[in-house]
């Protein structure tokens, strides 16, 4: 079942521009220059119920703009968009009931109030029945381990604690769709893991549909079955991580720890891409030579202490895609 449908979405912003320096400031008083930024050019995609989709792209690609259109905050210039059969900006309030949003760099909790009071307020705002609220709250408190945080004013929480509370706040009204805009930004490793495992449970056990915007490729690898990559407001790729990889490079890497650091290894079907002491990294194309064959070759010729096969890190793949598409 398709929950979210986006077709040929376009949105441009007009931003005032000023030439630098004194003269520019003076000129800006009378004639103001405007520059149009095409945040979304032509974006189309669909989401099915229960999917967890990664939405990635370089800074300024239009990721947050898309999320804001889907949340009903922004009105696009053209294109169509439906969330659960509704046009979000026309029925902003009805849409809001079915959607949870977390913007990683902001908080929706009341800064000066204890977390529990923010939760109570959200119950009133979304008009959730007290029994439903208690149940949802109890589950979220348990899943996110918030027991000790409920009576702490939000301003005293660490970023990781706050993000967990924000996740709970976005889900208290039990929306079927969740937009996560950079939820792991700035978090330490344990907090990132906590957020990831929570999001995984949410989709697997609750069937919540999630769009995850992030720059952290570990988030994507850990969570997403499908990745939509955009740059300059256009969809460059839409498919599984594996497809994304093969689209860019099929290269594999063999990392070899030699017993003798001075030993020479070569093979016409592979290239040495790095050498640090006894550790040699060899790249090869699995279409030209199968990994076992290459390994057998090397083992026959030199003494090897340890050996691992790697794919190109997803970061490099994405960086290369961004580069190819002229991203800054």
């Amino acid at each position: 079942m398709t929950l979210v449908r986006v077709e040929n979405l376009a949105k441009s912003f007009r931003v005032a521009e000023r030439c630098p320096g004194m003269w520019g400031a003076v000129r800006g008083l009378v004639a103001r220059g405007y520059r149009t930024i095409q945040a979304l050019d032509d974006v189309s995609f669909e989401l099915s119920a229960g999917e967890l989709v990664g939405y990635i792209g370089p800074n300024g690609a239009g990721k947050s703009t898309t999320v804001k259109v889907l949340a009903g905050i922004l009105v696009p210039d053209s294109g169509r968009c439906e969330v659960l059969g509704r046009v979000p900006w026309r029925e902003r309030r009805a849409n809001a009931r079915d959607v949870g949003v977390v913007f990683g760099q902001r908080t929706q909790l009341w800064w000066d109030l204890p977390v529990a009071e923010s939760f109570d307020l959200l119950r009133e705002i979304y008009a959730v029945a007290p029994a439903d609220h208690r149940r949802a709250r109890g589950e979220l408190v348990e899943m996110l381990d918030l027991g000790g945080l409920l009576n702490v004013p939000v301003r005293q929480l660490s970023l990781g604690q706050r993000m967990r509370c924000d996740l709970a706040a976005a889900l208290l009204h039990q929306p079927p769709i969740l937009y996560l805009d950079e939820p792991t930004i700035g978090l330490d490793a344990p907090s990132k893991l906590a957020v990831r495992s929570f999001v995984r449970t949410l989709t697997r056990e609750r069937g919540v549909t999630v769009i995850l915007t992030t720059h952290d490729m570990d988030d994507i690898e850990a969570l997403c079955q499908r990745v939509i990559l955009i740059a300059h407001g256009r969809v460059l790729s839409n498919g599984s991580l594996k497809d994304l990889r093969t689209q860019v490079s099929r290269e594999r890497r063999l990392v070899i720890d030699l017993a003798d650091p001075m030993a020479e290894i070569t093979d016409p079907r592979a290239t040495i891409t790095a050498r640090e002491g006894a550790r040699v990294t060899v790249s090869f194309d699995p279409d030209r030579v199968a990994a076992p064959e290459l390994i057998a070759q090397f083992c026959a010729r030199v003494a090897i202490r340890d050996l691992t096969i790697e794919s190109v890190p997803i970061e490099e793949i994405v960086a290369q895609l961004y580069r190819e598409n002229g991203a800054p």
Binding site: K68, A71, G72, I73, R92, R93, A94, A96, R97, V99, V101, F103, R106, T107, Q108, I125, Y126, A127
Partner: peptide, 14 residues
């Protein structure tokens, strides 16, 4: 200023 106003618009309220 901070852009948190975005959250105000994600609420089912006037």
């Amino acid at each position: 200023r901070s852009g948190n106003v975005a959250y105000e618009l994600t609420r089912p309220t006037d």
